[in-house]
Structure formats: C-alpha cells, structure tokens
C-alpha cells in the first residue's frame, strides 16, 4: 500500500521544496491523482485480473413473457466479464448477448443475458431463474473519484514510480517568479518523465509476472483444415 501522505513530501523534495504559493497542496493532490489514474489504466490494460472481483449474489424477477429482470449496483465498476447463474452451489457462465441477438435467442430458447448500463447495471435473462441466483464477475476500477484518495493499492516498493510520476505531473502547475526554480523546470520534468517511464515499464513487467494465467486462445478443431484452404 502506498499512502498519499508519504508521496507529498517526497514530491516537494524532488522540486527542491517550493513554497505552497508556487505549488499548491491542491495541485499536488491533483498530480498524485492523475498519476494514480495513469497507473490504474496500465493495470486495467494488462490481462492479469489485478482488480477481478465477484459481486454479491442477487436474484431477478419476472418482467414480461419469458423475461426476468433486475438491477445491481456495482460501485467502481470498470468492465463486466460475465454473468454467472448458480443452483445448489453449482455456478455456470451465462452468455452475454447483444441487443440485436436478444430476440433470436428468445425465439430459439438459448439461455442468454442482456446486460446494460454502468455502475447501476440492468440485467435481463431469457430463462426462468427462480430456482437459483446470479453473481457477476467483473473488473473493478479501484477508484472512487468522489472520495479523497489516501492510499493506493500497489506494493510499497513501487512508491518511487509514484514519486517520479507525480513530480512530473506537477510541472505545469508550478507558478513562480524565482529564476532558480523556473530554470530547472524543463530539465527536471524530462528527468521525472524518463524515470517514471522506466519505473512504469518495470511495474508492467511485474504485473505480467504474476502467477495467474492470462487469456489463452483455444485452437479451433478445424484450424488445420482452414489454414490449408486459405493456402489454396
């Protein structure tokens, strides 16, 4: 865990302790937040399920003919992976379908779910779920923009990455008449950006080295035949 209270003085030191009239506490917070967003985005884009989560279980109510509907609120939702339906403790994945395929699925009685919205998700299924319950597998964005961020859930040995990143983010917000500070802004910003990029690369390597397997593609049964036809 990395705490903003630890990052702030280190960023100020990297900028050689400017006055708070030159780099305000608000700007400093914004810079840390932006850095956290950049890092979170990197984490979201790597298939290591760093923020994978299950929702609480929920049930749906009948809403029209052969349709069951309900809503579930998931704060800090980044993206839904899939819906699961469970009966007697046995869970199975329900296909998520697009709105164009919904009627077709209903006509053919192929189980499927239509999921829409964000944060407050609307979920509609085309089979009778009255004997079981649902849960969602999703990726959390681990970030609530309405709450003050005081801690960031990555290991403390990556705090240097944060310091370089936040220091670089501060550069455009420094306002000063002092020449000794003005003169060092461009050089320091370049240095901080370079250090941040280097640390971010290491961080991504670390993410990729996590134990859980990433997404692997199954080779279709007819792959070989298809490949040969393509050659012809």
């Amino acid at each position: 865990m990395i705490y903003t209270s630890d990052i702030k003085p280190k960023v100020m030191r990297l900028w050689e302790l400017p006055a708070t009239t030159e780099l305000s506490p608000h700007s400093l917070k914004d810079a840390i937040l932006r850095t956290w967003n950049r890092i979170l985005t990197e984490m979201q884009m790597i298939d290591r399920n760093y923020f994978a989560a299950f929702s609480n279980t929920f049930t749906l109510n009948q809403d029209g003919e052969e349709e069951w509907f309900g809503t579930i609120s998931i704060p800090n939702l980044s993206m839904v992976i899939h819906l699961e339906y469970g009966e007697n403790g046995i869970w199975r994945q329900i296909d998520t379908v697009s709105i164009e395929n919904w009627d077709y699925r209903k006509q053919k009685s192929i189980p499927g779910a239509l999921i829409s919205g964000h944060d407050l998700l609307s979920i509609r299924v085309n089979f009778d779920p009255s004997d079981g319950e649902f849960r969602l597998r999703y990726i959390s964005c681990e970030f609530d923009s309405s709450a003050p961020v005081t801690e960031m859930t990555i290991p403390p040995f990556f705090s240097a990455m944060f310091e370089w990143g936040a220091a670089a983010e501060c550069a455009p917000m420094i306002t000063t008449d002092r020449m000794e500070l003005k003169e060092i802004i461009p050089a320091k910003t370049s240095l901080f950006e370079a250090k941040f990029s280097e640390n971010l690369r290491q961080f991504k390597d670390w993410l990729r080295a996590q134990g859980n397997k990433g997404i692997t593609r199954r080779i279709p049964a007819n792959a070989r035949r298809r490949r040969q036809r393509w050659r012809i």
């Binding site: 209270s5 702030k8 003085p9 100020m12 302790l17 708070t20 506490p25 400093l28 917070k29």
Partner: peptide, 8 residues
C-alpha cells in the same frame, strides 16, 4: 505553516 502537511 506546512499547509496540508505537504512537507511531511
């Protein structure tokens, strides 16, 4: 002043 503990 150390506003908002920016220096620690």
């Amino acid at each position: 002043t150390n506003l908002d503990n920016v220096y620690g």
